[in-house]
């Protein structure tokens, strides 16, 4: 795990161009949203709350906007939601290219290679995403939600909120929910790594490959994910808190805030690169381990009569790396 973390930190500090590409994936939907919001927010300048909004937060500005200009309010929400959706899809799309560049090392042009890699992996990544969403629905909806539903049923309709069954249900939801989400997502990540390495031609094979790599090593994998989550959250919190306290009152100050926030997002993007690099190192370690086991098994099998090997493909072939 420490090896993986070192690799991640090295990549976080060294892969600045890659981080820049990820940062651009934030800036693009944000820029579109900024432009689209212009006609929807113009009314704030002709409201009495305009001056107070320049000074800071004004609860009446928000509530009166919602109460009296419903169309603009809904439009603003729609723009924000569409920007979020677009940004998320863009991140999903770019992940394949980012992984390929990380695997190959920092060769220029990074942006072009990320886009080319993403385009090349688009179809298989889409299938993998579909599989991921299904797995998520199964684990969160079926397993996590199903067990919670069963516990609720066992408790009965007239159970008091602090009854052991209800407590167990809440505890289950609080623990199994996030844990299930993390594990399903990590398997998706490892499958995408397998696709990026070219180990698997389809999402199905990639998922099949990622399974054994997680098995028996869930704790270190979860450790890596949690650690990088912590780093990313801490960075986000720090930059947001400082940004909010800047509370610009002039055009210059607003520009300074925008620059500061973008610097923060760039650092967060670097942390994301670090996470992927850590995950790649973990994956490499597991591949090597599984490959050596395969070789050992193959050696043993060579001593055995040829007819015992069936069609000649040892068990390690399915999980071995690309040529």
């Amino acid at each position: 795990m420490s090896d993986a973390l070192r690799a991640g930190l090295r990549a976080m500090a060294g892969q600045r161009r890659l981080a820049g590409v990820l940062w651009l994936s934030l800036v693009l939907p944000a820029g579109v949203a900024f432009t689209a919001l212009a006609p929807l927010t113009r009314l704030l300048d002709s409201s009495p709350s305009g001056a107070s909004l320049v000074k800071g937060w004004d609860s009446w500005a928000l509530l009166s906007w919602h109460a009296t200009r419903t169309a603009q309010w809904k439009g603003t929400l729609a723009v924000v939601l569409l920007a979020l959706l677009g940004g998320w899809l863009l991140q999903l799309f770019l992940t394949g290219g980012v992984l390929r560049v990380l695997i190959a090392g920092d060769r220029r042009p990074v942006l072009g290679r990320v886009v080319a890699g993403s385009v090349a992996l688009f179809k298989v990544n889409l299938w993998a995403t579909g599989r991921y969403l299904l797995s998520l629905a199964f684990w969160l909806g079926g397993v996590c939600g199903g067990v919670a539903w069963l516990l609720g049923k066992v408790a009965g309709a007239s159970a008091v909120p602090e009854s052991p069954w209800i407590q167990a249900r809440d505890l289950w939801l609080l623990s199994a929910g996030p844990l299930g989400f993390f594990m399903v997502s990590l398997r998706f990540d490892l499958a995408r790594i397998a696709l990026a390495r070219g180990e698997a031609a389809t999402a199905r094979i990639a998922y099949r490959l990622s399974g054994p790599r997680i098995r028996g090593h869930r704790t270190p994998l979860l450790g890596i994910a949690l650690l990088w989550s912590g780093v990313a959250l801490a960075l986000g919190w720090a930059f947001t808190t400082i940004g909010v306290s800047m509370n610009p009152g002039s055009v210059g100050a607003l520009l300074a805030l925008v620059l500061f926030r973008q610097a923060g997002f760039a650092v967060q993007a670097a942390a994301r690169v670090g996470f992927w690099a850590s995950l790649l190192r973990f994956d490499e370690g597991r591949r090597a381990h599984l490959a050596s086991r395969t070789i050992r098994l193959s050696d043993e099998e060579t001593a055995a009569p040829l007819h015992d090997r069936g069609d000649g493909e040892g068990p390690g072939h399915a999980t071995s790396g690309p040529p």
Binding site: L22, P29, A33, L84, G87, F182, F188, G243
Partner: peptide, 16 residues
């Protein structure tokens, strides 16, 4: 508003 969008998108980076 766009910082909020970027914050939420980068929050997704906090997850695997």
């Amino acid at each position: 508003a766009v910082h909020l969008v970027e914050n939420l998108l980068s929050l997704a980076w906090s997850l695997p």
